[in-house]
Design a protein around this nucleic acid. Structure first.
Lengths: 146, 146
DNA sequence: ATAATCTCTATTAGATTAGTATAGTATACA
DNA sequence: TGTATACTATACTAATCTAATAGAGATTAT
């Protein structure tokens, strides 16, 4: 399991769209500015997120992007798996490897599977709605702190 | 957290040496044959494991490698961290990032830390002695099965 | 001496990743 | 109906990482 730079920003993109959920579309230009990454790079991320069914787009002059479903219906784990692949420390955990040749590997596999399961349990138990409320309460604390 | 090919074989190397613990040194040639990887590649792995204090070596004609400590005193997690780096899904979990600039990142960081902690708990709770006994009982089952 | 073994560093080939470039297509609106 | 603005799609590049190879050297039993 490795979250890439692209994956990291895919998550931040969805979080941003979650925060602005219900306010219509958001232009990629604004999104890129807030996330502080190149527009062209973000384009690729958004295209991939669209293919994955996480976001929708409107073309044309007042076009932009918006979430394809309510933030409460998008799990953190789903997005991670879609962008950065299976949540496993090594590529031998999933099915298709059950008849592994060497005993050594098998001894480790059980452990990697445990690790993958515990990680999955964590990230599949967090929705973007949860994250939005965390962002909001963090902002709240900031206000009081000042 | 990503176990590389090299890391995978570093673990298998230590497991092999654990199985043969107490029988003196093992020549790299034999090890490479059992693990089925190029000798030259294994050399680098062993050199690194030596630097990490996991194995010792004897030079000269009847030289070879052996574990530097008893298999019960080597945790799986130690070796993983030494060869493949910190057990984190993304490089923003450890200390040194506590003053992160953007709120977005902070919201995710807590989760990546949770993931890292649960993975660490698993791999730090397994010693190579444990793995050896698993290998042995697996072999036992094989015998009975035939 | 010499053969067998470990030591050390450099190099290469391929894959992955972040980022850039460019030529489109769709739509609102004057 | 023209045009500005936005999304679509694919190709390309530079940097980094990884697996693997190469070769010269150091140590030790016999």
């Amino acid at each position: 399991m490795k979250i890439t730079y692209k994956g990291d920003y895919a998550l931040k993109t969805i979080l941003d769209l979650s925060i602005h959920y219900g306010n219509g579309v958001i232009a990629i230009h604004d999104l890129a500015k807030r996330l502080d990454i190149p527009v062209k790079f973000l384009e690729q991320i958004l295209l991939e997120l669209k293919k994955g069914g996480f976001v929708e787009s409107r073309r044309g002059k007042i076009g932009g992007y918006l979430l394809a479903k309510h933030p409460s219906r998008i799990k953190l784990g789903e997005v991670v798996r879609y962008i950065d692949g299976p949540i496993e420390p090594i590529a031998c955990v999933g099915s298709g490897y059950s008849n592994c040749k060497d005993l050594y590997r098998c001894v480790f596999r059980k452990i990697w599977r445990d690790v993958a399961e515990s990680a999955t349990e964590i990230v599949d138990n967090v929705t973007f709605e949860d994250l939005v409320s965390k962002v909001k309460s963090a902002k709240q604390r900031l206000v009081y702190a000042v």
